[in-house]
C-alpha cells in the first residue's frame, strides 16, 4: 500500500510499503530516499554516522528476499518517537529526546531551513558571523 513517511524535518515522502502492525518494511531505495539511511557492511548509516544492527536481532531489521529494511525497528532501537495513522497511511519518525538534549548541551545552535513570505529559503547557518536574535511569534 501507499504510505507517506514524515522523517524528522524532511519533506513528506510517499513510498509503496508493507506496514505490519508497528513495523514498516521498505525497499532499500525507498529507505535511502525517504530517510537518508543506507545499509553498509558496518551497519546502517546516515549523515556520516553508522549504527551496527544489534547482534542476534538481524531478522527484526533486515529481510533478504526481496531485500527490505524495517525502519520502525531502527527508530525504536534509536529511541525515536514513532507514530502511525493506519487509516491515512502516514508514519512519523521524530528525533530522540536524548539526541535533542545532547544537541542543546553542546551549546551549538541547531540549524534549520525555513521559507520567508516570498518562499525564499533561509537557514540559520546563512547568518553565521553575526549575532543572531532568534525570536518566535505567532498570529494565533
Amino acid at each position: 500500500m501507499s504510505v507517506t513517511i514524515l522523517y524528522k524535518e524532511q519533506p513528506p515522502f510517499p513510498v509503496m510499503a508493507t506496514p505490519d502492525g508497528d513495523d514498516l518494511w521498505l525497499t532499500l531505495d525507498d529507505l535511502r530516499s525517504a530517510t537518508g539511511w543506507e545499509i553498509r557492511p558496518e551497519g546502517v548509516c546516515r549523515e556520516g554516522q553508522c549504527v551496527p544492527i544489534p547482534e542476534g536481532r538481524e531478522r527484526e531489521f533486515v529481510r533478504e528476499s526481496p531485500p527490505r529494511f524495517n525502519l520502525a525497528a531502527l527508530a525504536r532501537w534509536l529511541e525515536q518517537p514513532v507514530l502511525h495513522d493506519d487509516v491515512h497511511g502516514v508514519w512519523f519518525f521524530g528525533e530522540a529526546a536524548r539526541v535533542r538534549r545532547e544537541t542543546l548541551r553542546s551549546l551549538q545552535a541547531p540549524d534549520f531551513r525555513l521559507p520567508d513570505l516570498e518562499g525564499r529559503m533561509h537557514s540559520l547557518a546563512n547568518y553565521r558571523g553575526k549575532k543572531i536574535f532568534l525570536v518566535s511569534w505567532a498570529s494565533w
Binding site: 528525533e95 540559520l124 549575532k131 518566535s136
Partner: peptide, 22 residues
C-alpha cells in the same frame, strides 16, 4: 524551531553568537 529549541510559548528567544554558539 520550537521543537529544536524547546520553546513553549511566544515570544520566546535565543541568543546565538557569531560562532553559532547559544
Amino acid at each position: 524551531v520550537a521543537e529544536l529549541y524547546s520553546m513553549v510559548n511566544v515570544p520566546s528567544a535565543v541568543w546565538i553568537d557569531e560562532a553559532g554558539r547559544i
